[in-house]
Amino acid sequence: MQPIISISGVTKTYATGFTALKEINLDIRRGEIFALLGPNGAGKTTLISIVCGIVNRSSGTVTVDGHDINRDYRAARSLIGLVPQELTIDAFESVWATVNYSRGLFGKPADKAFVEKVLRDLSLWDKKDAKAITLSGGMKRRLMIAKALSHEPRILFLDEPTAGVDVELRQDMWAMVRRLREDGVTIILTTHYIEEAEAMADRVGVINRGEIVLVEDKAELMRKLGRKRLILELRSPLDAIPDAFSHYALELSPDGGQLTYTYDNQSERPGVASLIRELEAAGIHFRDMDTENSSLEEIFVNLVRKQA
């Protein structure tokens, strides 16, 4: 299937001479939730801004549902809703006026019932006559989302939507994202909470210093780059790890009661089975064992560190 967004060879050098993006190639699949991860200043917002038409790129092409974002900007932009990272709202307008304005701006005829539904879904309906300046930070964030959804976009960009948002709103937000995806909306989000990407995303892209370091199915990524940890609860504590096991990357807990063995999913280095056999043979018995997968966060930190 044709990707819904296709970014090829996109670079961006700001007026300051700083190159924020170097030859970005990225395809976003129709209907997926794509998480773009990267440290501060990696170029996430710059990339999103280019696709949305807020910043001019220095070179490269971008198409949205087959429409070139320059030649065919009307068709491209009307498909996109953007919730920017910064809370930027006209402080003196009412919630109702602001959201209806956004709908009109994107070329949609007025539809009070639809705007009401958007506001209700985001628990903003009872604030519809309030001026934006009187809203709390979390409500402003919801207002930004309402504006982005007001024109029924097929693609939604969420640039760090959960920064400064409490747990309840965050959960509401993810529930909303899932509903949107069920309706076929493609969602691209950036976040610093990697657990979120882990819980939500279908695919993950990592960007660092203006370069896409990796794009992978989330499950595949976890399988490929994830590490496993085998934790053994010992029957009787050890003083130290016997020399015979020095070729295993073993760690002993301070109280000597727990052994941890970390290994890559892929490498066929000293296997778990042989470790257990050897431990038994050496008379080190355990009463319980557990395995843990490493989180996306660890994968991410490792990747970025490797690059530095």
Binding site: I54, A76, L82, G107
Partner: peptide, 18 residues
């Protein structure tokens, strides 16, 4: 100038308007 100043100009720039 005002939307440029507060940043809300992003919406105008991202909208399908000529």
């Amino acid at each position: 100038y005002f939307p440029k100043f507060v940043g809300s100009i992003y919406e105008l720039l991202s909208a399908p308007v000529s």
